[in-house]
């Protein structure tokens, strides 16, 4: 069952990743990328890493992809306005991506030894993470609120207009 699910998810992931590259319309590319992220989140769940799966969906499929869509819509990118890419550019891109593939395959081949070391059960559960976060890492968790508060105050300060006098 798990194995079949794995093959199904992998098939979907590879297929949608290919569609990201091959679809002509950038908006479709982004939508296919969202599917890719969801399938990868499914892989995380199969690996017992629930928290990672949820964060992956929220951050990548949610926040970052919405940002992508906004940028594409703001720039009004579509098939007609897409600049023509010369063959030499495509050739260079293929070589670069191929080199990245070689590096990734090469490094993943060496990971077998490390995987066997980390056999602690339930390390990816939300419960385990929560226990660590609210016991050992309580202070960093709380201090993060200061970081977010500073970022919020900063955003308001930069965004608020100084022209009008009615606010003071």
């Amino acid at each position: 069952m798990t194995l079949n699910l794995f093959y199904f998810l992998s098939f979907l992931a590879v297929l949608s990743a290919l569609m990201v590259v091959f679809s002509k319309n950038p908006v479709y590319s982004v939508l296919y990328l969202i599917i890719t992220f969801f399938t990868i989140a499914g892989h995380y769940i199969l690996l017992d890493a629930q928290f990672l799966a949820v964060v992956h969906v929220i951050v990548y499929a949610g926040a970052i992809m919405v940002l992508f869509l906004y940028v594409i819509m703001l720039l009004n990118l579509n098939r007609e306005s897409e600049p023509h890419k010369s063959n030499i550019l495509k050739f260079a891109a293929v070589i670069c991506a191929g080199l990245l593939l070689v590096v990734l395959v090469g490094s993943l081949k060496g990971t077998e030894a490390i995987v066997q070391q980390s056999g602690k059960a339930g390390i990816g559960y939300v419960k385990t993470l929560g226990e660590v976060m609210f016991k050992e890492f309580l202070l960093p968790f709380e201090i993060t609120s200061i970081l977010l508060l500073a970022a919020m105050v900063g955003a308001v300060m930069l965004g608020k207009s100084e022209k009008t006098n009615d606010t003071i």
Partner: peptide, 22 residues
């Protein structure tokens, strides 16, 4: 983790303050 948070709190506040003469 505390080092990272400290550096980020300091830096993010300063990014904004550096641009406070809008």
């Amino acid at each position: 983790a505390m080092l990272f948070l400290g550096i980020e709190i300091l830096s993010i506040s300063l990014y904004v303050l550096a641009g406070s003469r809008k």
